[in-house]
């Protein structure tokens, strides 16, 4: 039990360490030198190529994407954070260059509708289960004998055995 706690605490410690580190990394001016392709790709992955459906900017081979990656590099070198870069691209080229619509206005519907639908589904499930289990079931629900669980399965296998062994 203590093991779990220790691990949980350690996770927490790691994550808070990361918050500190992330803040340090994101501080402007940290990227004085040219960013590496991997750093550029990290951001480019969160943008989608508008001229070729369904591919993100990191993976797309077109000229547009190459230019965009270069621009991401410039912005990173200026010390912009990932979020700022995404906002720049959304403002410059439209919201549809983001892999996921921004969380505002009508776009919230992307997230809200499924959540409502799932909750409604759960609600219906609960309601039906409640209604069904409340029905009188006296006719064909004799009390289950205490060892029935193990037996039911074994019985099934034995039945099969009999039906096959003639």
């Amino acid at each position: 039990m203590f093991g779990v706690l220790r691990v949980a605490l350690r996770c927490l410690a790691f994550s808070s360490l990361w918050v500190v580190l992330a803040l340090a990394w994101d501080a402007p001016g940290m990227f004085a030198q040219t960013p590496s392709p991997d750093e550029i790709n990290r951001v480019a992955k969160m943008l989608s190529c508008p001229t070729c459906a369904g591919i993100n900017v990191a993976d797309c081979p077109t000229e547009t994407c190459a230019q965009w990656r270069a621009k991401i590099g410039e912005l990173l070198a200026e010390g912009k954070t990932d979020q700022e870069i995404l906002e720049y691209f959304a403002a410059r080229y439209g919201d549809h260059v983001l892999q996921v619509p921004p969380t505002r206005g009508f776009f919230l519907g992307v997230w809200i509708v499924p959540i409502i639908a799932i909750l409604a589904g759960l609600g219906t499930f609960g309601y039906l289960a409640h209604r069904w289990t409340k029905r009188p079931t006296a006719i064909e629900s004799p009390a289950v004998p205490s060892d029935a669980v193990e037996d039911e399965y074994v019985k099934r296998v034995e039945q099969e055995l009999q039906s096959w062994q003639k």
Binding site: P50, T51, T64, Q67, W68, A70, K71, Y93
Partner: peptide, 10 residues
């Protein structure tokens, strides 16, 4: 002229 989906440099 309207420059579509372009970086300013390009």
């Amino acid at each position: 002229g309207v420059d579509y989906l372009d970086t300013d440099t390009a």
